[in-house]
Design a protein around this nucleic acid. Structure first.
Lengths: 337, 337
DNA sequence: GACAGCACAGAAAAGGTTTTCTATAATAAG
DNA sequence: CTTATTATAGAAAACCTTTTCTGTGCTGTC
């Protein structure tokens, strides 16, 4: 691969030193005669010169790159986050590496190493390996090392580790949606959660339990099934749940994907939503509006969260702890009893 | 931001020259004594040294970065592609920039420039600004410049421009799904397409027309509505279509998002799928299976296509032209008349 | 026993930048 | 008129690598 136009070419053509060209490009606070600037700018335009980011990176020991680590980029949940991240990054002159771990902590570790090698400006975590006991230690160690060199790390799904975050209160989320069902007259309410060791899952489940207990309703384990936050997982978990317990009038799903699967499972059993079983969930991914029935769900501002994480990395204070608001979007998957 | 461990630190500690360390890292075909290699490797391990990609990039004038340009990363269609791309890239030691254009050609141009500044190994296009008359020229110019320096460009949605591609035959796709409806006894078949100037849209629509004409069925413009490939677009277009023409027994949607919106619109009108109106589409995004009714659609191997595009960039021949197979996934959104 | 070849290793150059240091001329201050 | 300051600009060093060049012993061949 041949080299492109370099700063040296520009300097030669404009009959100035590379120093001057560099000063103009980075427009630093150093006086350069208007005439010179103009001439150089013209040559830059003519030659279509653009600085080599790698070289800048070496010299400045910094980059305009942001790393985003997700479990599954094809999941709308992460897709919305990724959109917020990439759009905001672009606005701030950055590019984003997106790293798809598939919930494989070994890959995640590898990604962290790669991101470090690229001296990224910061890393956005959206959950991941921190909940795997055997990797947690290794991961934390690596994160510490990175932070030591000024790399910024922020999470959108804190997992009991002290670090900057932009999140929603998952416990509250679980409580709110459950309370919504209770307020609509439901008493027998099931819960389909995510992976049992994942912090987000645990919190949302605790919120559910809390609301149920406050209302003195039964929330024993037979009212609970857990999945993996996927549609297929939700489908299967819902089938299990309906086998465990037959008198549910409503199910609280830990995320929208689960709700999609659950509603499909409910139909499979010859039942209807919301006539026979009401469904509520957490997330509000874009398709929620067009589902049948349209899904009542607690809206999480995914896009905004991605955006804010980037803002933190690029411009933010040394540490942030932001808890976003989440509001219920009422549609038609919950019936008044 | 302080610098990390460098190759010099390793060399000093292992009492060898940086040359030797470099040779070991890149394990080139140059003899280095087993004992030396071992010693250096140990120091690398101890110091947790990893090479600085920026510096490597400058010297080698090459990178391990792949650029992926999409219109909307939160759309499952692009999400699947992105997953294929990032996973395969990772497998080959590469990282991927994902660039979200939001169908804004100005942003796209900016992204291309940034990717070039990073000297990415290659760029994967998934449609985009090439269909915008005023940007086409500029874009092609830029792509040419990049190619001249060895940067590889491949598209997953050719737009009448000669370049390497991995695609499906969109004309055939449109024909096949329409024929499927015809084979199931439908005669009055509507079509909801994507943006009218987009190549993919045009091709799929031509396929529809071709099948209809072969069967001597009416496919005048009143049977057609166009959207923007989104769920909301599909919803609105379907409403328009049902107003234009009242005797449709089936609608052919140019992609799954449109189908999602269309089915919602059909319900809105008090009709049912497939009882009153059958729906077929193209794509098979992951949620198609869990929709109500489960969607009959022509499966496009998005993930595979992303994967193959990466393979081309990293290892492939100088030029590729691959047309993937697409197969109908029969579910329950089409009724036999 | 001379000479070719090879295994092994380091010094130095090169890659495209930015930054620091040095230099010159012009202007302002005394 | 001298001196201090400032505007302007270039030379050279630095950033972390890889690659080319040079060099030293050793093995094997005739």
């Amino acid at each position: 691969m041949e080299h492109g136009i370099t700063i040296v070419d520009v300097a030669r053509q404009a009959k100035v030193s590379v120093t001057t060209v560099s000063r103009i490009i980075n427009n630093v606070s150093y006086p350069v005669a208007a005439k010179t600037r103009e001439r150089v700018l013209k040559v830059i335009e003519e030659l279509q010169y653009t600085p080599n980011k790698a070289a800048q990176g070496v010299r400045k020991n910094a980059s305009d790159i942001i790393g985003l680590i997700v479990r599954d980029i094809s999941d709308s949940y992460f897709g919305e986050i990724a959109k917020g991240v990439t759009n905001e990054a672009s606005k701030l002159g950055c590019l984003s590496f997106v790293c798809n771990t598939g919930r494989n902590p070994h890959d995640e570790l590898k990604y962290h190493d790669l991101l470090w090698q690229h001296r990224v400006k910061g890393i956005i975590l959206t959950g991941g390996g921190l909940d795997q006991v055997d990797y947690r230690q290794k991961l934390l160690q690596q994160l510490d090392r990175h932070r030591k060199y000024g790399l910024r790390i922020v999470t959108l799904a804190p997992q009991g580790v002290a670090m900057p975050y932009v999140m929603i209160n998952d416990f509250e989320a679980g409580r709110i949606v459950t309370q919504y069902l209770i307020d609509h007259g439901h008493k027998k309410i099931g819960f389909i959660g995510g992976p049992q060791k994942v912090f987000t899952s645990i919190e949302r489940y605790s919120g559910y339990q809390n609301a149920m207990q406050d209302a003195s309703f039964d929330c024993g384990t037979e009212y609970t099934a857990s999945s993996d936050f996927s549609q297929t997982g939700g489908y299967e978990a819902c089938l299990r749940l309906l086998q465990q317990v037959s008198d549910c009038t409503a199910i609280c799903c830990a995320n929208d994907n689960i709700a999609v699967g659950a509603m499909s499972a409910i139909r499979k059993m010859g039942l209807k939503t919301p006539k026979d079983i009401s469904i509520i969930s957490i997330g509000d991914i874009s398709e929620a509006k067009y589902m049948h029935p349209p899904l009542t769900t607690l809206r999480i501002p995914h896009y905004e969260m991605g955006k804010m994480a980037v803002d933190y990395i690029v411009n933010g204070e040394d540490n942030i702890k932001i808890t976003m608001d989440a509001t219920i979007i009422e549609r038609q998957s919950v019936r008044n009893l």
